[in-house]
Design a protein around this nucleic acid. Structure first.
Lengths: 233, 233
DNA sequence: TCGTTTTGTCATTCTGCGGTAACAAAATAC
DNA sequence: GTATTTTGTTACCGCAGAATGACAAAACGA
């Protein structure tokens, strides 16, 4: 990961005190902090430059944080940007709702800047994005988003559009379980209504694609939870 | 979190009024409160018994709170003890300084007991249980709730859903006996009617799972009481 | 336009897991 | 010592959830 690059973080929060505190902590940790007080301002800021990560308040004046998250997931340009939700009073229902909307993590108020930074780093590490050329390499597979191609070693892997997106998501979000619902949000894009079982089918197709290269074991089933991409058996 | 374990909290504060108020609130919340008026008394109290959490006033007669925090961080015995700073009129510079000294959180005076308790619980949840990344490590086992996986060293442990939940509960509630009924409540979820004997079977299955890694001794039977997860034989 | 590829859904099969009963073994009481 | 309670272990069944294959509609390309 390009760690020497200044990470660009967008804070969407209406409470000035929290916003300032977080911005200060981020800058001190060597990150670049932008801020927006509501969803509209956030969208404007994102339009100018796509941040590396978004800190999103649950409750916002006007469009709620969760709605903004959904909208960002729909847009091709912002689908991959990791989102951390800032929520007051962590209720399970909220939690699930947030994760279903494709949120990567959430932090419950009141939080310390230490905890927030730890979560940011964790999410960044997990979602190790592509390098400058848009190439991700993992588990013996290489995915080249510029060329829109997948390789196993030197051999090109023939893969369909949806399987490609699915694999791309997995490879940039490895070592973590995702529910079918989450996968639909991330890979298909929020707001699309598709049966959950459809994910099974595409998982099957992805495995079939990777089978000739003996890489199908990378896509793992977690019974009762969802699917996971892991280099470890 | 319904922990019936009495948490031991040390309050280091020279103002009697605040000290009493906090102590009262803590006891009311089911925690055990000790107090010290200055750094010297604090160190004496810690020497007698290491608390689960320390509430530390910023301004103290003699050695300042921040210095005491630094000293506690240096000592092997007290390094892991979470500290919450009590600071008057939060100036940014002070805040950051406190966080830098390894303080886990801070509360600005005047504060409500409600806020203080919320912060204490948040810090405890993070310290006692999972860290920010959702990883618990104990007895040579590592459980990663994000990946929904268990490791013994570098080797992944193949484990079923219920055994996973059971182990997760045990590892976040170690060194304490739980009756079968309690385990059913916590692991299976309240309101489910299941035979108590079922717990036995799953304990057996968990032990079997851990056997190849010689970690089955961690799950201990307490005859007439229930089961316990302990790193000590 | 026609053929090919892709995609979503359904029906079916299959598998792993959870729960329970039944018996063996151990601990405790008498 | 025996009787009784408590726990360990195994075997079995039912079922929910997952895998799989087939199919039709839609998208795409030539």
């Amino acid at each position: 990961m390009g760690d020497s690059v200044q990470k660009h973080i967008l804070i969407v929060e209406d409470e000035t005190a929290i916003r300032d505190m977080v911005a200060f902590a981020l800058r001190k940790a060597g990150m670049e902090a932008m801020h927006a007080a509501d969803a509209r301002a956030a969208q404007a800021a994102i339009g100018e430059r796509i941040p590396d990560l978004i800190l999103l308040d649950w409750m916002l004046p006007g469009m709620s944080g969760i709605d903004l998250a959904r909208r960002l997931r729909k847009d091709e340009l912002t689908r991959e940007v990791p989102i951390i939700m800032l929520t007051a009073r962590g209720e399970e229902t909220d939690r699930v709702g947030g994760l279903d909307a494709g949120v990567d993590d959430y932090v419950v108020k009141p939080f310390s800047t230490r905890e927030l930074l730890a979560r940011i780093r964790a999410v960044m590490r997990r979602t190790h994005g592509e390098d400058a050329e848009g190439v991700v390499e993992l588990g013996g597979l290489r995915i080249d988003s510029a060329a829109h191609r997948v390789f196993c070693g030197e051999q090109p892997v023939h893969i369909g559009p949806t399987e490609y997106r699915l694999l791309h998501f997995f490879m940039t979000h490895a070592e973590r379980v995702y529910t079918r619902s989450q996968l639909l949000d991330h890979v298909w894009g929020g707001g699309v209504y598709v049966e959950e079982r459809t994910v099974d089918v595409h998982i099957r197709r992805l495995r079939k694609t990777l089978e000739p290269f003996t890489r199908d074991a990378l896509v793992q089933t977690v019974r009762g939870a969802g699917y996971r991409f892991s280099t470890r058996v």
